[in-house]
Design a protein around this nucleic acid. Structure first.
Length: 822
RNA sequence: GCGAGGGUGGCGGAAUUGGUAGACGCGCUAGACUUAGGAUCUAGUGAGGCAACUCGUGCGGGUUCAAAUCCCGCCUCUCGCACCA
């Protein structure tokens, strides 16, 4: 019998076996389903350690659930549209399509080398015509529903990517992808009305019980719902209304000035009368494009406003700290009770008026050093003075509403999703512009609008498609007159918002998916990916699913039941990156140690949600462990011969009552390990502790004297089964060598029995005054009095209790005795 | 600034409900086998101390028979948001 562990050899063998026998292909059935999904890779470059970690975690779950008897859907595909393909075209003069497909081929090969349990028949590639045509189809459906619209608006423009970006894609004023500073550009863009779902997106977050709270919190903040009032101030000279939004109408009597955003429409009028401030306004506009907080700056507009509640005349300022995008682009400033207004008022010497008094104390406008933003008692507020601010807020709102001064208003930070991209490598937006008929959607029967292949990509001068006249020129589907096609393509986040539905229904061509299939498999039971998509992809997908539900295409309203955001793979304390030179090539590691070792290390080194420090010595540790397992099994085969080792499909000895001595201890050990591994996978995804308990079992088996018995051999078989989701190749090989014919994947996951978990003897800790002084070994379940008597008679304990009065004795059954003296 | 999550040996990390702190692995030390060992096996390994013991989970307090775990205050690190009215 060959007893060298040669990982590369057996890994190739079993990968071929899985493929040829279609071990992981799945069909809808009446079995319990389990849909495990990892975020699909973007098709640039090769796989890095982060991918490997992501897919390994998913693979453990998929294999475990298979052995648990679930009908498991575990698919993979490629996020294939996007800008890097165009950059490659510019830099290397390769067509984006060729570049993408070349990369896909490499990625496929790499993925297959990892021995992942994918159903490859369900592969989805988003740049394929049979995929992106459905993006267009959804677009048309959304258009009919009024969920998609076009408007001219200031857009986030990335000068490097030469395209606009959605709000979510701007991080600290920079492009989420290339880190270039974003500028604003007035453009006509297509938007998806995600704000229509703002309330539902927000409210359903709390039902996502198995999502990390950080991600949920981030989404809540991103949606940013706040309740308040829109109050109408007006200009003092004419009656032009100036609506402002506030969440604190209870502070309105403390409003000492008004502030307009430098982009406020009233500026037009103001600048006519007061052209001297134009430069300052322009400068403030620029300030607002900067990331982060800038020094507050403002200028008096020369105009005055009237406070509707007391007819007071207050100055109107223009300042860089008021954003046009939120609320009405104008605020009432209450410096005494708002930190920003306070800072601004101090800087410009504007009046401060206290209208909320902290409970039990007073505020002095002259001496206060910061705004008081908490609740309190209303003062200086006419008939509302004396009310608690919470109550006053309601009263004053009702009163203003009755007087027609204000209306209740809900504001969101979330804005509609801009999906237009002035790029080539994406889904063409299926719209035609006709002189006579205006904006006309491409009829469904004319889909797909194919992306032309003969395009020059230069990265300059607007959308590449606009220069392909054969694409642009078309006929109006309504009147037949010559017309022009939309040349923007869709944001690639559209592609990733529904790819998991396509997986669930292979090759359906009259609809984006077969609703029956999708209703069977959805929702995704476990989604795994990086935290960087906490907002972007995860919010867009949630929105998409809700929209498709409202279209009647699917039943579920949330796509991902449980979410795991895995930590990064770091080295020398930093994220792996080319610039730092700390990148570890997965291929090289696999070549040297084998896939099972790489997988094992990733799973063992840290729990999945925390960052993982890459240490080659750790790899050696796992490799050593696998070789120990290998040796343990092969030595047994050499000793007793293969035939004798083969045990029945049901383990009989390990579950037999009445075992004695060492066999009883082994039985206990095996049962304990089954329980531990099962619970660590099932409940906590703590694969590191699952593996450590398997290591303990292996250490135990090494020391076990009576090798060759049925109990021992069954223990080995169970070890192989328990280890198989983590390091499947070596386990398949060992399983086969043990004489089994069916793949390890097809085996039932071992179960444990409660009765064998109990220990016959337990160690009871003896403390005196809470300090550990001694330990005794007693029969499990021994009576309290008996244990206490034994404890008190120990020599070591007597030393501490002699001549002292025993106040009480705390007893925790089978664990601890604490003797409290004096 | 606001919000969230961390801080445990030389290192990665265990300790699931308050009940033996440091499982498991790495590293290290010693020994065995060996021509050899960067293979393998055995033993040891939180700190101090000859020992009995003492100290020990970021720091300081508290609750409790008992605290890494609960409470209060502080320090520090990471992440997210950053003028959202």
């Amino acid at each position: 019998m060959n007893s060298d562990y040669e990982p590369r050899k057996i890994e190739k063998k079993w990968q071929r076996f899985w493929k040829e026998n279609k071990v992981f292909s799945c069909e809808r059935s009446n079995k319990r389903k389990y849909y495990v999904l990892e975020m699909f890779p973007y098709t640039s470059g090769t796989l890095h350690m982060g991918h490997i970690r992501n897919y390994t975690i998913g693979d453990v779950l998929a294999r475990y659930k298979l052995m648990q008897g679930y009908n498991v859907l575990h698919p993979i595909g490629f996020d294939a549209f996007g800008l890097p393909a165009e950059n490659a075209a510019i830099e290397k003069n390769i067509h984006p399509q060729k570049w993408t497909y070349d990369n896909i081929r490499v990625l496929e090969r790499q993925l297959k080398e990892l021995g992942l349990s994918y159903d490859w028949d369900r592969e989805v590639i988003t740049c394929n015509e049979d995929y992106y045509r459905w993006n267009q189809w959804f677009f048309l459906k959304f258009y009919e529903m009024g969920l998609v619209y076009r408007k001219k608006a200031p857009a986030n423009w990335c000068p490097s990517c030469q395209t606009v970006l959605a709000n979510e894609q701007v991080v600290n004023g920079r492009c989420y992808r290339c880190d270039t500073e974003i500028s604003q550009k007035e453009l006509t863009q297509w938007f998806l009305k995600i704000t229509q779902y703002a309330d539902e997106l927000l409210e359903e977050i709390e039902n996502l019980r198995n999502w990390p709270s950080t991600v949920k919190k981030m989404q809540v903040n991103w949606i940013g719902r706040s309740y308040g009032m829109e109050i109408n101030f007006r200009l003092s000279d004419d009656l032009t209304p100036i609506p402002v939004f506030t969440t604190r109408p209870d502070t309105i009597f403390g409003a000492t000035y008004l502030v307009l955003s430098p982009q406020h429409p009233l500026l037009e009028k103001i600048l006519v009368r007061n052209p001297g401030i134009k430069d300052a306004v322009e400068r403030m506009k620029k300030d607002q494009l900067k990331k982060g907080e800038v020094e507050k700056e403002g200028i008096f507009s020369g105009f005055w406003a009237i406070n509707p509640v007391n007819q007071e005349k207050i100055p109107i300022w223009i300042a860089n700290y008021v954003l046009m995008q939120y609320g009405t682009g104008a605020i009432m400033a209450v410096p005494a009770h708002d930190e920003r207004d306070f800072e601004f008022a101090k800087k410009y010497g504007l009046p401060i008026r206290v209208v909320i008094r902290p409970p039990g104390s007073n505020l002095n406008e002259e001496t206060m050093s910061q705004a008081y933003v908490e609740e309190g008692e209303m003062v200086n507020s006419a008939q509302f003075s004396g009310l608690p601010s919470e109550k006053g807020r309601e009263e004053i709102s009702k009163w203003m509403q009755a007087k027609g001064m204000a209306t209740p208003k809900v504001n969101y930070k979330l804005r509609d999703w801009c999906i237009s991209r002035q790029r080539y490598w994406g889904t063409p937006i299926p719209i035609i512009y006709c002189e006579k008929c205006g904006t006309v959607p491409v009829p469904e029967k004319d889909l797909p609008v194919l992306l032309p292949s003969d395009v020059k990509i230069t990265g300059k001068g607007g959308s590449p498609l606009s220069r392909v006249s054969s694409f642009v020129r078309c006929r109006c589907p309504r009147c037949g007159a010559p017309a022009r096609r939309e040349t923007d393509t869709m944001d690639t986040f559209v592609d990733s918002s529904w790819y998991f539905l396509r997986y669930a229904s292979k090759k359906h061509d009259c609809l984006p998916f077969d609703p029956e299939e999708v209703n069977y498999w959805m929702p995704v039971d476990q989604y795994i990916g990086g935290i960087e998509h906490a907002i972007l992809h995860l919010l867009y997908s949630r929105f998409f699913i809700k929209a498709l539900r409202d279209l009647g295409l699917i039943k579920v309203g949330e796509p991902f039941k449980r979410l795991l955001t895995q930590g990064m793979v770091i080295k020398d304390g930093a994220k792996m990156s080319k610039s730092k030179g700390n990148v570890v090539d997965p291929g090289e590691m696999i070549e040297r140690f084998g896939v099972d070792t790489v997988r094992g290390f990733i799973l063992f080194a840290a729990p999945p949600e925390v960052d993982l420090e890459w240490k080659e010595q750790g790899l050696e540790g796992i490799n050593r462990f696998l070789r120990r397992v290998w040796r343990l099994v092969n030595e047994e085969l050499d000793r007793s011969g293969q035939e004798k080792v083969k045990v029945r499909a049901e383990f009989l000895e390990i579950y037999r009552s009445g075992l004695k001595g060492k066999e009883r201890i082994l039985q206990h050990m095996v049962n304990k390990t089954i329980k531990k591994v099962t619970e660590d996978i099932e409940e906590r995804y703590h694969f590191n502790t699952a593996l450590s308990s398997l290591m303990e079992l292996v250490n135990f088996l090494y020391q076990f004297p009576d090798k060759g018995t049925s109990v021992y051999r069954e223990a080995l078989a169970i070890l192989v089964l328990l280890l198989s989701p983590f390091t499947p190749h070596i386990c398949e090989e060992l399983w086969q060598r043990m004489g089994y014919e069916e793949s390890v994947v097809k085996q039932r996951w071992p179960s444990y029995r409660e009765e064998f978990l109990k220990e016959d003897e337990v160690t009871v800790v003896i403390q005196v005054n809470g300090k550990l002084r001694d330990k005794i070994c007693v029969q499990a379940g021994m009576a309290r009095e008996e244990v206490e008597r034994l404890a008190l008679h120990r020599e070591k304990i007597k030393r501490y209790t002699q001549e002292k009065k025993i106040k009480r004795i705390i007893y925790v059954p089978d664990r601890l005795v604490n003797i409290v003296v004096e």
